[in-house]
Design a protein around this nucleic acid. Structure first.
Lengths: 211, 211
DNA sequence: TATATATTGATAAAAAAATCACGTAAAATC
DNA sequence: GATTTTACGTGATTTTTTTATCAATATATA
């Protein structure tokens, strides 16, 4: 319906609201106001309203939002209400951490198989997920209709892995390497660079010291 | 000198440029142009110029930048030229992944000790880093003058851990939990939420399907 | 039932970020 | 040596994002 693209920042903030609202439910609350959320995160109430409005949520004056409705609305908006399978390539430390993270359950994404080229890793089971040889990727992905691929291998291999993913019908890639693999336009790529966060930290420290 | 605050987005992009430029060096190049970087990342050349200008770098028309100079300039700007120690709290999957990541070397940050409350984890050595009981945190941090803290424990413990960090002289916190602990203003906090990335992915998939 | 209050959604204003456009400088070519 | 080309830096412009304002409305209270 809405043809406007959703700001990435909005999408980034919503999971936080979600988590906070879940906490409120757990402690027995039934309602939440935008001001409450804004206050908790130290951001502007109007921003929270705008963000929530994107999900189609409408609140009641003087009351705010019914938590259950709000949670559902965000869940639905983010696509967390449909289950989808993911393959992960790279069963090293980072891969294992992602596999074992557990926190993704709520997003409806479940990692169903891991892949690696290292013979020492193949055959192992991490948190219930088996590690298969990389050459089986395409076959299995096509057969199982997997659409999400996670890249946690070494940077040098990322380009090749991304290529394999594309030809295997993967339409969304979550890439943890600092490399930016070339993929067709219709493939969604989300890059999480661990050291860009560290960069912000060390830069801010430097700024502080300069004062 | 410059009293203007640096846009976070600039700081986030610079490590990517850095990595790309490092690759160019590795393949024997001596120079790089903004257009080259922009082209590689699919962004606007002016943006690259502006970003690099923040680091104080000035290029030569028709040539671009000497790679070695550019790398050094970025490194210096990001504070990657000074070594600093970090403590990590939570030696589970994610913590182990961060400890074993290795990619942080270039940033000058080195993780020197891990902490946990789980007796099963205490005493273990992960990638050369020993896991200490949490109660030793403050003592060790003060003694070693550690300024960076990384939180990879369970969300429920994050608030308490952050408090401990603050009283232990930590001035910069990298938080992987979805909780937003309260810290004094002078403490820098950088939040990496793994599932906010996943949120973007599943939302974009949904948008695509809607078309 | 009337009035006060809190919180909403919508719209306007401000701020920030990204892009464009232009003049300039170094190298390459003629 | 003159001309062309390429890439630079920077100020102006556009776009996007965030913040402020305000009328409307549901609840609580008198």
């Amino acid at each position: 319906m809405t043809d406007t693209t959703i700001p990435t920042n909005t999408i980034r903030r919503l999971p936080r609201y979600y988590h906070y609202m879940q906490d409120l439910v757990d402690q027995g609350d039934k309602y939440v106001t935008s001001d409450q959320i804004a206050n908790y995160f130290g951001i502007h109430p109007t921003q929270v309203r705008k963000d929530l409005a994107f999900t189609g949520l409408i609140g009641k004056p003087k009351v705010g939002h019914v938590l259950q409705e709000a949670l559902e609305s965000v869940r639905n908006f983010l696509g967390w209400d449909t289950n989808s399978k993911a393959f992960i390539v790279g069963a090293g430390n980072l891969g294992s951490a992602i596999i074992g993270y557990g926190g993704f359950d709520v997003t409806g994404v479940s990692i169903v198989a891991a892949f690696d080229t290292d013979p020492d890793k193949i055959g192992h089971v991490i948190n219930g997920i088996e590690v298969f040889p990389m050459r089986k990727f395409t076959d299995m992905a096509l057969k199982m209709g997997v659409k999400i691929g996670i890249i946690t291998c070494a940077a040098e291999a990322a380009e090749a892995v991304a290529n394999t993913m594309v030809v295997s019908g993967i339409t969304a890639i979550w890439n943890f390497t600092p490399v930016k693999p070339y993929v067709p336009e219709n493939v969604i790529m989300e890059q999480t660079e661990l050291y860009s966060s560290l960069a912000i930290l060390s830069r801010r420290i430097k700024e502080l010291e300069g004062k």
